[in-house]
Simulated assay, not measured.
Amino acid sequence: MSVPLYRSKAEFFKTLGHPVRIRVLELLSEREHGVSEMLRDTGVEPAYLSQQLAVLRRADLVVARREGTAVYYALTSPQVAELLRTARLILTGVLAGRAEPPDDHRAPAPREESP
């Protein structure tokens, strides 16, 4: 029996639901990165980065290649970068909405009383 699409989507978003994994995907959205670069840019310990990269590999979101002793990572699909851009747009709108609610959500102006 196949897994319903909504469950697969939930698992996918769980995979994305970690700040270090999001940061790694953002870096890889720009270009391929070596592990040493990602360590510098994420500020996490090597073992921790390795764990997060393993999660992303299992989800087929990133692919690794070895060049000598260095390991480089890249996104498996440009659609991952597009998803991150879309998420940024959504969040920008949500956060902007918190600063000042749209006209139809503002409290009504106080009524002036008649003499």
Rank of each mutant, 00 (worst) to 15 (best):
Ala107Lys: 07
Gly43Cys: 08
Val35Glu: 14
Tyr6Thr: 12
Arg58Gly: 01
Arg106Lys: 14
Glu37His: 12
Leu53Ala: 04
Arg98His: 07
Pro19Ala: 00
Arg85His: 12
Lys9Gly: 05
Thr92Leu: 12
Ala10Ile: 05
Asp103Trp: 04
Met1Ile: 03
Val62Gly: 04
Gly93Ser: 11
His18Tyr: 02
Ala109Ile: 07
Tyr48Gly: 02
Glu82Tyr: 05
Leu56Phe: 05
Met1Ser: 10
Tyr72Thr: 08
Leu39Pro: 09
Phe13Ser: 06
Ala59Ser: 02
Val20Pro: 07
Arg65Lys: 10
Asp103Tyr: 06
Ala74Gln: 10
Leu84Ser: 01
Arg65Asn: 03
Leu83Tyr: 07
Lys9Arg: 14
Phe13Lys: 04
Gln79Lys: 11
Phe13Tyr: 12
Val62His: 05
Glu37Asp: 15
Leu56Glu: 05
Val94Lys: 11
Glu45Gly: 11
Arg85Phe: 06
Arg111Ala: 15
Leu95Val: 08
Glu26Gln: 15
Ala10Ser: 10
Gln51Asn: 07
Val35Gly: 03
Ser2Glu: 14
Tyr73Asn: 02
Gln79Val: 13
Ile90Glu: 14
Ile22Glu: 15
Arg106Ser: 03
Leu5Ser: 08
Leu49Pro: 01
Asp41Met: 15
Arg21Asp: 02
Ser8Glu: 14
Gly43Leu: 08
Glu82Leu: 14
Thr42Asn: 12
Ser114Asn: 06
Tyr73Val: 00
Ser77Thr: 03
Ala99Trp: 06
Gly34Asp: 11
Pro101Leu: 09
Val44Ser: 02
Leu61Cys: 03
Leu95Met: 10
Arg88Lys: 13
Leu27Cys: 11
Val20Lys: 12
Gln79Tyr: 12
Gln79Ile: 10
Arg98Gly: 10
Ser114Lys: 10
Ser77Val: 00
Val80Arg: 04
Asp60Arg: 10
Ser50Glu: 05
Pro115Trp: 00
Arg23Ala: 15
Leu5Val: 12
Arg66Tyr: 00
Pro19Val: 00
Pro110Ile: 11
Pro4Tyr: 08
Arg66Gly: 02
Gln52Cys: 05
Leu5Phe: 09
Pro110Asn: 06
Arg111Gly: 14
Leu27Asn: 13
Arg7Tyr: 06
Leu56Thr: 04
Arg65Phe: 01
Glu30Gly: 03
His18Gly: 03
Ala47Arg: 07
Arg58Trp: 02
Asp41Glu: 15
His18Asn: 15
Glu45Tyr: 13
